[in-house]
Amino acid sequence: MNNSRPFTSQMPGPRIILLTTLALIAFASNSLLCRVALKQTNIDAASFTSIRLIAGAAMLWLLVRIRRNTASGSGNWLSALALFAYAAAFSFAYVSLTAATGALLLFGAVQATMIGYGIWIGEKLRTQQLVGLVLAIGGLVVLLLPGLAAPPLWGSILMMIAGAAWGVYSLRGRGAGDPSKVSAGNFLRAVPLALILSILMQKNAVLDSAGVGYALASGALASGFGYIVWYTVLPALKTSSAATVQLSVPVIAALGGIVFLGEPLTLRLVLAALAILGGIGLVLLKR
């Protein structure tokens, strides 16, 4: 396992809180950075994806070299394909979705994929968890029902594909070795896939300094550095705590979208968020 486990298990409480908060803010920032880049700059979604993955790969490779961890881990092509599918669908979805709606759909799809896999391999759900699952599904239905406040259907489908791909990526990463090295290897393998996408869509390619800057920040800081911080603090968190604190990511993204992007907070989104996050919380929380 990760050599940092003995260190993190003795980490002081305030440091655990600080690192956990930084990681969650980084995860939520991916939604904000992608949305602002595709809304307020001219960069195209394919270029954003490529630059994000290149920056993430470079940051993770650098941090792995600095840490010199002796634990094994290198990533693989199937996980890299899932990572690429997530990153590409994520970018194209945010062409039309708000930061809050995108983050909520992404998180819901990630958890649905992982919970569904658990059910498929024979895990039993208690009554509390079944109620939570029905509540979360109901929240997604409320969010996607046709109407004036409904998010664009194509963007919503793409974001749910992104969430499913991230769920697969997360499931494949369990026990795969040192998280830092595995992440670095997967990011490096995902880069050529993203470059192929950019080549295929080169007619629509547009780059500007602001868009490139947001993509670099998304890849290097919100993705690469965020994952390292999360994996550093993860051994110090209980499994149930690690799962439930991630419920705050869509909320942070929603608040960021309202404050920094001027996005509206609709009643439909509030009700859907309460149902989805509350339902997932019931599934994840142990008695």
Rank of each mutant, 00 (worst) to 15 (best):
V191N: 02
A176K: 11
N186G: 09
M159Y: 10
A162W: 08
V182D: 02
A165H: 12
F187Q: 10
L197N: 01
S183I: 11
L195R: 00
A162V: 02
V191E: 08
S183E: 14
G175K: 08
N186F: 09
S170N: 10
P179Y: 03
K181A: 13
F187L: 11
G167A: 05
I161G: 10
Y169G: 08
R174G: 05
V191Q: 09
L197S: 00
A165T: 13
Y169R: 13
L158I: 02
M160R: 06
L171V: 04
A190D: 08
Y169Q: 13
R189D: 04
L193A: 05
I161E: 02
L188K: 09
L158Q: 14
V168I: 15
Y169A: 15
S180K: 14
L193V: 01
G175Q: 02
L188G: 00
G173R: 10
G163Q: 04
G173F: 04
K181E: 09
R189V: 11
S170K: 12
S170I: 03
Y169F: 15
L188Y: 14
F187I: 07
G173M: 05
V182T: 06
F187N: 02
L171A: 06
F187R: 12
K181H: 14
A184F: 07
R189H: 09
L197R: 01
A176F: 01
S183D: 06
G185F: 11
A194C: 06
R189A: 14
A194P: 00
G177K: 07
P192F: 12
G177Q: 03
G175F: 07
S183H: 03
G173T: 11
V191K: 00
G167V: 04
S180V: 13
D178R: 15
A164F: 11
A184T: 00
A184K: 11
G163K: 04
D178L: 10
R174M: 13
L158M: 15
L195C: 05
M160D: 12
M160W: 07
V182N: 00
A165K: 07
I196H: 08
A194Q: 00
L195E: 13
A184P: 05
L197G: 05
V191R: 01
N186Q: 15
W166T: 02
Y169L: 07
R189N: 12
A194L: 07
I196R: 10
L193K: 07
A176S: 15
